[in-house]
């Protein structure tokens, strides 16, 4: 079943168009990787999907009861968070804010959900630790747990492995794969095309060249072969 259908999307800011004529759809349980050069509009596309900004043209249809508040989002880290005094539990629990509704405080169910998601990502023992003192990989796990508190349906990940070392990167990828296997739709922006292609089911390439389709087709396409090189194991440099 299709969860998300984009037709002829035009992205950008007031008088700058970053991308045009983007048409693609995402099915429930899909794993879509969005790739493209810097400045191609990947993050803008994600912000548009999250309804943080309006598209300049075209339409986005959401299905499967997918409201803005039931999409989990893993943004890129901001400077503000670098020295923010917050415990891991506080950060994860804040993922439940869409269930606050008109309530002022988090319900028992929300707290339970936060605990379960910490367990799911193996960060239960970090609960009382300070977020700013964690390693990059641990911080990403915390933010992923927070995103999971907001959704059981769809995760939007904006460069989840940026700045992580190779070992932690592959741990992060298998974690995301595990969540996808559990039935959560994953839409991920990545610079690391070779690695993305290894895990993703579909690829959306935007920028100078446009491609949308399965990973197999992407490997054979002009855009894919150009960026992946032979066999898909070369890292390209941006």
């Amino acid at each position: 079943m299709e969860q998300l259908i984009c037709k002829n999307l035009k992205l950008g800011y007031e008088n700058i168009t970053l991308a045009e004529d983007l048409s693609f759809s995402v099915e429930a349980g899909d794993y879509l990787c969005i790739v493209g050069e810097n400045g191609a509009g990947k993050s803008t596309l994600m912000r548009t999907l999250l309804r943080l900004q309006k598209p300049l043209g075209g339409t986005i249809e959401y299905h499967d009861d997918l409201t803005a508040s039931s999409i989990g989002y893993l943004p890129q880290q901001t400077i503000v968070q670098k020295d923010f005094p917050a415990s891991v539990y506080e950060v994860v629990l804040s993922g439940c804010q869409n269930s606050l509704g008109f309530h002022l405080f988090y319900s028992k169910a929300a707290k339970e959900r936060a605990r379960k998601n910490m367990e799911r990502l193996g960060i239960t023992d970090l609960a009382k630790r300070c977020y700013r003192e964690l390693s990059g990989g641990q911080q990403q796990r915390v933010l992923l747990a927070r995103a999971l508190c907001a959704t059981e349906k769809m995760l939007l990940l904006d460069e989840p492995v940026a700045g992580l070392d190779p070992l932690v990167t592959s741990e992060m990828y298998s974690l995301i794969e595990k969540l996808n296997d559990e039935g959560i739709t994953v839409i991920m922006i990545s610079h690391d095309i070779a690695c993305s292609v290894k895990y993703a089911k579909h690829v959306l390439h935007i920028g100078n060249e446009f491609f949308f389709g399965t990973v197999e087709d992407y490997k054979k396409s002009p855009a894919g072969s150009k960026y992946l090189g032979e066999g898909g194991h070369h890292h390209h440099h941006v």
Partner: peptide, 19 residues
């Protein structure tokens, strides 16, 4: 308090989930 925390820690996330 909870909303203030959410919007201070990560405004983009808060907005994305409908706060």
């Amino acid at each position: 308090y909870n909303r203030f925390f959410a919007v201070t820690f990560d405004e983009s996330f808060a907005k994305a989930v409908g706060t």
